[in-house]
Design a protein around this nucleic acid. Structure first.
Lengths: 172, 172
DNA sequence: CCATGTATCTTATTTTATAAGATACATGTA
DNA sequence: TACATGTATCTTATAAAATAAGATACATGG
């Protein structure tokens, strides 16, 4: 078990002009912004590990995650989420379908379009790989006082307003 | 400006066995775990947008982010962070070097090895693209009471212990 | 009914990543 | 010191993934 410890004082973790973290007193907001970035970098890394283990690419992972978080989506919505071209999404969906992770269903709202849905059975294998991180996280969170948890939820509510305009809108 | 609003009650946002979000009362911890995942998915999306605009691939982005967050690194450390093969990192570094974003410097600790460092001048263009998200985030955070910010920082401290063992260790 | 726009798919081509092997240096042991 | 083994990076042929351009089928608004 690693004992690597991040700087915990308020005297670190601000990204400065010279493109590196530099010491010095910084505000809580500054530190939180850096923490968010570190969380994201770590998540991308972990994601890549999982992807490799099950033979997915990163685009395939993003598709699966979006479907799991936001429910059935159209290919065009996934085009936005992944940044792939339309052809790229088609090919990615072919891969995922052949591997049994998704199904293409008709979109009742538009006969040109499709709704991509996840196949629960296949997903179990994948979610199992995230289970340890998630349960560990949940367990740790439960050690925090309720007032802290509420503050964290308010924090995420704030973030939503930052993200809302920079995120694809699901149009079914 | 979008008016899309996420579910804010405690009666939503838990990922269930059927691989989709389902309604029902859930704990704060459960909701936070989902929020983390949504943050990550949104970040990957935003990342892809930025990457496309400046003609990077996602691997290149991850390399730049890691260098910015953790300082100069060896190619092998970047191999771990990106999940690329050693040859893949070499090629990615060639791209980044030709584009002027990084430099290969000798590693004083090991003559076989290198230290990859960012070139501040080129980075300005890239950081500018994140500036609006970050400053907007900072501005919103500053509307939160200090006690909430402290709680959020404690939250990230907890997360570090979850991530520590699932993250590459920088060995210079 | 028609013109225009949108959603997905197809396929040739380009871009990226891998795998296998090579070189140069490090490390530990005798 | 000499040697065997291990590690860090690079090279290059090959494989995988994504793009671009174009095609088809349906939607939408006059």
């Amino acid at each position: 078990m690693s004992t690597r410890v991040e700087a915990k004082s308020r005297y670190a973790s601000k990204i400065t002009d010279d493109c590196q973290t530099a010491p010095g007193p910084v505000s809580a907001a500054d530190r939180i912004v850096v923490e968010i970035r570190k969380l994201i970098a770590a998540a991308i890394f972990f994601n890549a590990q999982v992807a490799e283990k099950i033979g997915f690419g990163l685009s395939d992972m993003q598709i699966v995650h979006v479907l799991q978080l936001y429910g059935p989506s159209t290919p065009s919505s996934l085009t936005a989420w992944t940044g792939l071209s339309t052809g790229g999404v088609t090919v990615a969906l072919d891969r995922l379908q052949k591997a049994g992770y998704i199904r293409r269903e008709p979109n009742p709202a538009d006969r040109r379009s499709l709704l991509i849905t996840l196949m629960p059975v296949r997903m179990r294998k994948l979610t199992a790989m995230y289970e340890s991180v998630e349960s560990e996280t949940r367990k740790l969170l439960e050690t925090m006082p309720q007032s802290d948890l509420d503050a964290v939820l308010r924090f995420f509510e704030l973030l939503h307003s930052v993200q809302a305009d920079r995120r694809p809108v699901a149009r079914l």
